[in-house]
Amino acid sequence: MTLTVLFAAGQDLFNDYHVPLANALKDNAPEAVLVTEAAPETVDYIIYAPSSVLQDFTPYTRCKAVLNLWAGVEKIVGNPTLTQPLCRMVDPALTQGMVEYVSGHALRHHLGMDAHIHARPGDWNPVDPPLAQDRSIAILGLGALGQAVAKALSAFGFQMHGWARGPKSVPGMTCHHGPTGLTDCLSRAEILVTLLPLTPDTENLLDTRALAILPEGAALINPGRGGLVDDTALIAALDSGHISHATLDVFRTEPLPADHPFWAHPRVTVTPHIAATTRPHTAAQVIAQNIARSEMGQPLLNLVDRSRGY
């Protein structure tokens, strides 16, 4: 029986994904046919991006799953017409990209590299940075990405702390949970990394109060979600010097508007949402293998829990 797989993520992305998906489906689910248009009642699976023009899932009565191309699902999970199972993207290449981004910027802040990169004649101030074993890094969010980043950073010898909503156990890391645990974790974060999903519970989690808990001179790395951070509170903390620097890869509005104060702030590094991009060749394998699992009666991988929002 032929399976109709609708690519509903836009033509630009289809240009990138067409060949990798066709090859991955041929290897994993040869009965699947990849299309960009189809009668809704004939569609078995939908490959999706939140920017899609498809917003009403009601007519897709035969659809067995919606397979999101991104790790984040906050822009789709609340859609009341979406009754089909929703899977988020968990891709080894995406995870590796995040590990490399966070590790690079954590080491940059740890070693004080900016001062040397921007040094001028006469700027001879040989201050030895601490060793990793003398520096504490905290990660908010201990899912697949947070645990992978923790593993990489703990290999350098950093004192690792992590926070999640519920109890977690991660090798090489002191784990905290709940409201009291969040305070304990933040108070130890000389470098803070945010890798939480964006939900009603996590929006503006890093507000004036939370930022004030961080040690004086802490650095922030946010490759998670822009809405985790109160922009106004962060700018105030940077202006006061309480936060020494913020490296930000995600924003409430993207691209970041040209008049946003982050662009001109001397203690902010803006990167254009590059920390963990979905790469077509590896993501195509994840999607095709999930379709194959579903057709064999196995549980879908990376299924979103609607009650938690991710």
Rank of each mutant, 00 (worst) to 15 (best):
T4K: 03
T4N: 03
L6K: 02
G10L: 01
D12F: 14
D12S: 13
L13N: 01
F14L: 10
F14T: 01
V19Y: 08
A22F: 02
A22E: 07
A24C: 14
L25K: 10
E31F: 13
A32V: 01
L34F: 00
L34V: 10
V35P: 10
T36C: 07
A38T: 14
A38I: 09
P40W: 09
P40L: 14
E41D: 04
T42A: 08
V43S: 12
I46V: 14
S51K: 14
V53L: 03
Q55R: 01
D56V: 02
V66F: 05
A71E: 08
E74M: 08
E74S: 12
K75D: 12
I76M: 11
V77Y: 06
V77W: 06
V77H: 05
V77I: 14
P80G: 13
T81Q: 15
T83F: 10
L86A: 02
M89F: 03
D91W: 02
L94K: 15
M98W: 00
V99D: 10
Y101Q: 15
S103W: 07
L107D: 15
L111N: 09
G112F: 03
H116F: 07
H118Q: 13
A119H: 08
R120D: 03
R120F: 12
D123T: 06
D123K: 04
D123A: 11
W124H: 14
W124V: 13
W124M: 15
N125Q: 03
N125W: 08
P126D: 01
D128C: 12
I137N: 01
A138S: 08
L142F: 05
L142K: 09
G143P: 04
A144F: 09
G146C: 04
G146W: 08
A148C: 05
V149W: 14
A150W: 10
A152C: 13
A152T: 05
F156C: 03
T174R: 09
P179C: 00
T183Q: 03
D184E: 03
C185M: 03
A189D: 01
A189M: 03
L192M: 02
L192T: 08
L192K: 14
T194V: 11
T194L: 07
L198D: 08
T199W: 00
T199M: 05
T202W: 01
T202E: 02
E203C: 06
E203S: 06
L206T: 06
T208S: 11
L214H: 11
G217N: 12
A218S: 13
R225V: 00
V229C: 06
D230W: 12
A237M: 02
D239L: 04
H245L: 05
D249C: 05
V250W: 11
L256W: 09
H260A: 07
P261L: 10
F262S: 15
W263S: 00
H265G: 11
H265S: 08
V268S: 06
T269W: 07
A275V: 15
A284N: 08
Q285F: 08
V286S: 10
A292D: 15
R293C: 06
M296F: 09
G297L: 10
Q298T: 13
V304P: 13
D305R: 07
R306Q: 11
R308F: 15
G309M: 03
G309H: 11
G309C: 12
Y310D: 04
